[in-house]
């Protein structure tokens, strides 16, 4: 019996070893290092010199910190609300109202285009669209609609631009998840409601939304996690500017560590975000466990 178990272990760990090596060396180890670095003065010279909680003290003394926190909250909250609402709208449109699957899928495919556009190209697309000159596409429309002077959109409304750009890339994921959930609602629930004389709005509110409750919670949490930690779109369009107007928490960690080579300080900023992320992960895990239980 003992030998049998040992053989089984050997076999399993043969399959698992590449995975475990990669994860240990390039996931777990960096995680430990990041936390350790947060308590050091590590810079481009890479000398480990511990300085206790100094980095964290520095974060809270920095006058920009409060602005960055406000920016992050605003960015995440606004984007998440619009993302979920639009996800629901597009999912219901393309699956419930448009019953023809081919048409529905075509629209969903078009919604996916911003998501699959490489970030480097996607950001330039926005910069080009919002060019400050008369020939910029957005300005051409603005002038044609009665604007008097070309607007420098990115400089004047950096936050709106960043949110719109992020929003467009995040719609596709939630829409596909919601729309497969809508599809799995039994057709006779809709029929029964129609026989009872329910209007479309009532069907959406009383049948579709309650059925999607779990999915909505999940997508909200999942996208929040993504928005808190993904900074590539912002980095490429405004790079946190002008000034710190669009700097968010994750981006500031990147700036401190990789642009200013203050690795210790950047790691400390990262660690604080990791704490928030961990809380979110616990909530997600709890939500999923509850859903599993309720499904039996």
């Amino acid at each position: 019996m003992k030998r049998n178990m040992r053989q089984k272990n050997m076999q399993a760990y043969f399959f698992l070893s590449p995975f475990l090596i990669f994860i240990t060396v390039l996931y777990i180890l960096p995680a430990i290092l990041t936390v350790a670095m947060a308590f050091t003065k590590l810079d481009s010279a890479f000398i480990w010199e511990f300085n206790g909680l100094n980095n964290f003290r520095k974060i809270f003394k920095d006058p920009n910190t409060i602005i960055i926190i406000k920016n992050t909250l605003f960015y995440v909250l606004v984007t998440i609300v619009f993302t979920v609402v639009l996800d629901l709208f597009f999912a219901i449109m393309t699956t419930y109202f448009i019953q023809d699957e081919r048409k529905g899928n075509l629209f969903k495919a078009i919604l996916m285009i911003p998501m699959i556009t490489p970030a480097v190209v996607y950001s330039v697309l926005w910069i080009w669209l919002l060019e400050a000159t008369d020939t910029g596409l957005a300005n051409q429309f603005y002038l044609a609609l009665g604007g008097t002077q070309a607007v420098n959109w990115i400089a004047q409304y950096p936050f709106t631009v960043v949110i719109l750009a992020t929003l467009l890339t995040s719609i596709a994921y939630g829409t596909t998840v919601f729309s497969s959930a809508v599809k799995s609602i039994p057709e006779n629930q809709f029929r029964a409601a129609r026989v009872d004389g329910a209007g479309e709005w009532e069907i959406v509110r009383n049948i579709i939304l309650p059925n999607l409750r779990f999915h909505i919670t999940f997508i909200t949490l999942w996208e929040t996690l993504g928005l808190l930690t993904n900074y590539v779109t912002i980095m490429l369009i405004t790079n946190g500017g002008p000034g710190v107007q669009t700097e968010v928490w994750a981006l500031s960690s990147y700036h401190k560590a990789f642009a200013d080579s203050q690795y210790g300080y950047g790691a400390a900023i990262s660690v604080l975000l990791i704490l928030v992320v961990m809380v979110l992960m616990l909530v997600i895990a709890a939500v999923m466990r509850r859903q599993e239980k309720s499904q039996g």
Binding site: V25, Y27, P30, L33, N230, A257, S270
Partner: peptide, 12 residues
């Protein structure tokens, strides 16, 4: 989100 660990990965 693994991107938060890039500083550590850089060191490795």
């Amino acid at each position: 989100p693994g991107v938060l660990l890039l500083i550590g990965a850089l060191y490795v």
